[in-house]
Amino acid sequence: MVTAERTRERTPLEQRLWELAGAVPDPELPMVTLGDLGILRDLRMFGPGEVRVEITPTYTGCPAVEAMSCDIEDVLHAEGVPEVTVRTVLAPAWTTDDITAEGRRKLAASGIAPPRPQPADGPIPLTLAVRCPHCGSIDTELLSRFSSTACKALRRCVSCREPFDHFKEL
């Protein structure tokens, strides 16, 4: 039922609100927006003054989801929408392939190696090199599969010796 509804094109107002919600920065990675990460799934007007938004978490336990919901509500309230509901959906599961080219560029510019394209047979591709976001060398090594947030791994560049975060493939 909801799926059928989604085939309808967004109205100009919905499009404007979609862009506003998409421009909200990620609470833990403020250099990228929810739109860049591909986390914003749907936005619909239901009658005048009521908007329903769907977002999907990067990781099931991502603690930033509640902050994201509040930020979306704030930005849409500020735009004059009195009633905003943000719902979290799990399916289809988010993947790092949902991150836009612009999102990848911003991550790399901030010293976080962007995720590699997803192989067909699951996450954890160990064969492809990860490029150092500081000096561009592909001679880098894994320090820890888990880093400062659930979505990142910690690596070190063998050439320039700098440690860096890698947005790991999911």
């Binding site: 990781y59 099931t60 959906v89 799990l90 399916a91 289809p92 599961a93 988010w94 993947t95 699951g122 996450p123 954890i124 599969r145 888990f146 659930a150 790991k168 999911l170």
Partner: peptide, 21 residues
């Protein structure tokens, strides 16, 4: 359970890899 399982399996793949290493 499909929506949760399809998402969580990708997280658990990292847990398994960590334990194996």
């Amino acid at each position: 359970f499909g929506p949760l399982a399809a998402k969580a399996v990708k997280e658990v793949a990292y847990h398994q890899d960590h334990a194996e290493q």
